[in-house]
């Protein structure tokens, strides 16, 4: 599956910043993952774009820079959200994101919710989801929970020396992808994009609902492509 909502390129990729609705994400692997999710919710790439910022520490400066660009100041942009990993501390990251939106835009937002202020939609979604620790890899692995390859990957990782707690899901995803039939794949998001996880799993519904709400919020023109 080709990338639809972003352009493969450099670490910081904002070439789609002219789209009305923007998702700010950490890096390219997140872009591959969300590319498939956005296609799942029938988002229109002419209206929705992904912007990679190059790491969790770069959200504030990039969104501040975007908020000063003419796309934003002239009202062409109709919404921006952040989708990022929780890693270890859901409440800490949630507060940090809420503070970011409040300081830059004066809007109060919470995980998984879209708020519209002055015709522009704001929000953030923390992966894997509400009150959970983890990341994109954990969310992808959740979609194949109980499947043979997932179980065997888990058994394998348990059989070797203990891995650092903040790397469990990343390493597990690598084992899973290494054992998957098909082309070698080095990132969970990229693997998800290629169909090596289950994009219909209910664990993804909160994220899909969040994105659908975001796409619909404050719409003046249709930005969802109706299925043929």
């Amino acid at each position: 599956m080709a990338n639809i909502f972003f352009d493969i390129g450099q670490k910081n990729n904002n070439t789609r910043n002219d789209r009305e609705k923007l998702l700010f994400i950490e890096g390219t692997d997140d872009a591959y993952f969300l590319d498939r999710i956005l296609a799942n919710v029938n988002a229109d790439p002419d209206y929705v774009g992904l912007v990679t910022v190059g790491g969790t520490g770069q959200f504030l400066s990039n969104i501040k820079s975007f908020s000063k660009s003419s796309q934003f100041t002239t009202g062409k942009n109709k919404g921006l959200v952040i989708v990022r990993d929780v890693d270890e501390d859901f409440n800490g990251v949630s507060n940090e994101m809420a503070q970011l939106f409040f300081s830059l835009f004066g809007v109060v937002v919470r995980h998984g919710e879209i708020v519209v202020l002055d015709g522009r939609a704001y929000g953030f979604f923390l992966m894997p989801g509400q009150d959970r620790a983890g990341d994109l890899e954990r969310l992808c692995l959740d979609t194949v929970e109980g499947k043979v390859l997932a179980l065997k990957s888990y058994e394998f990782l348990n059989s070797v020396e203990p891995v650092p707690s903040d790397q469990v899901f990343k390493r597990l995803a690598q084992v899973y992808l290494a054992g998957h039939v098909g082309d070698l794949c080095r990132g969970a998001g990229r693997g998800f994009n290629r169909g090596q996880f289950d994009d219909t799993h209910a664990i993804l519904n909160p994220l899909k609902e969040f994105l659908s709400d975001f796409i619909r919020a404050g719409l003046t023109v249709p930005s969802v492509v109706e299925p043929a």
């Binding site: 910081n12 820079s65 796309q71």
Partner: peptide, 8 residues
């Protein structure tokens, strides 16, 4: 910040 991340 804006120039280093290539924002217009």
């Amino acid at each position: 910040d804006a120039m280093s991340a290539d924002w217009e």
